[in-house]
Computed example of a mutant assay.
Amino acid sequence: MIGKAEFFESLQTAINNNQITLPTLPEVALRVRDAVEQENVTAHQIADMVATDAALSARLLQVANSPLYRGRVTIDTIQMAITRLGFKLVRSLVVSLAMKQIFQATSDTLDVRLRTMWEQSVEVAAISRVLAQSITHLDKDQAMLAGLIHNIGALPILTWAESYPELMEDEAALDELVEELTPAIGVQILNTWGFNETLVKAAEQSRNLQYDGGPKADYVDIVIVARLQTQHSNQIASPADWLQVPAFLKVGLDPEIELIEIEGVAEDIESVQGAFL
């Protein structure tokens, strides 16, 4: 069976030779993302961008009227939806819808893996949002976006792995490969997309349990803790070991308590998942 180093080299060669194409975001997603970063952008301007994509427009209206964000008045225009949701959440929704479309497979085997990977990303995003709400210097919607994109590097890895049938048949070996190589490929993709350094770092370091970016929790810390809470990481044997993880200490969550056990948290997580799945 092909080794990790050999696989990584073959994947990089395939990318460089255009044998496999890194995923791209549609133009509307890039335009909305860039517009949100501008201080003088208006809801009307963003609405005009979103309106060019019927599926995206429908999704924003659906989320704006969902239990998580619903107000006393039903939202029936894109501009009203953007005003209610806020620019940063709209950015996350735009990117998530585009990414959900990217996580499509050409075979049943790959489809199962990509769907599982996307569901995990959404769960991490939902938990990241909840965690960031209690940390005043972090933005909950930025944290959610960091959770959404942290697995993006897995997509070309799994796609290229189909070239090696023996690897696809060995789930443990493939899982290990994805865990080790996803950060590096994710950095390549996010740099190509022009994402900011904060989000690139979240993808690069989300699997590094010894990451320590300073005395205060940052978005990498949030995503690391969210991943641990989902129990999708096999690097830590039990909650007792979480005290050894710098990110967990800085986020300040009691390692003896699962986040979903806190009153109201499970409902918040389910609502966010409902908006993105």
Rank of each mutant, 00 (worst) to 15 (best):
M1L: 05
F87L: 14
L190R: 07
D141Y: 13
R59H: 15
A146S: 10
L174F: 12
L61S: 08
R207L: 12
S206C: 13
G186A: 01
V251G: 02
G147Y: 10
R115Q: 06
L253I: 03
R129K: 06
T136I: 02
R91F: 00
H232M: 10
H137G: 05
A5Q: 12
P23R: 07
D34F: 01
R84V: 00
Q45V: 10
R207S: 10
Q45H: 13
K4R: 11
V94K: 03
I46P: 00
D76G: 09
L155S: 01
S10R: 14
T24Q: 15
N208D: 14
Q205T: 04
E180Y: 08
A143Q: 05
Q210Y: 04
D175V: 12
L148M: 13
Y219S: 04
V200M: 01
E176Y: 04
E261A: 08
D76M: 08
F7V: 06
L11M: 05
F195P: 04
L145G: 09
G3T: 13
L89V: 04
A247H: 01
K216S: 07
Q133K: 07
L114T: 06
D212H: 07
K216P: 00
R33N: 07
E270Y: 05
G71R: 01
A81G: 07
A275Y: 09
L145T: 15
N40Q: 09
L199Y: 06
V178D: 15
A29G: 05
L85C: 07
F7N: 09
G264L: 08
V73R: 15
I78D: 09
D48R: 15
N65E: 12
Q235N: 10
G3V: 06
M49N: 05
T109R: 12
L243P: 00
M168C: 15
D141S: 09
V124S: 00
A247E: 00
K140T: 07
S107Y: 03
T109P: 03
D268P: 02
E162N: 14
F195W: 02
D108V: 14
R84Q: 10
M144H: 04
E169Y: 13
R91T: 06
L110W: 01
L68E: 14
E267K: 12
S271M: 15
D53C: 07
R84K: 11
T106D: 15
I262L: 14
M99Y: 13
T109I: 09
M49P: 00
H232F: 11
G3Y: 09
L89Y: 06
A43I: 03
I75G: 09
K140N: 03
Q79T: 15
E270K: 08
E263D: 15
Q205E: 09
D254T: 00
I75E: 09
T116G: 10
E169V: 15
E162T: 13
I224H: 01
V73H: 11
H150A: 08
Y211Q: 03
S107P: 00
E6Q: 13
G264I: 07
Q244T: 11
K88I: 11
A43H: 13
I222V: 12
A143W: 06
N196R: 12
I260Y: 03
T42P: 02
T42H: 00
A64G: 08
W118M: 08
L97I: 07
F8I: 00
D76F: 08
I257D: 02
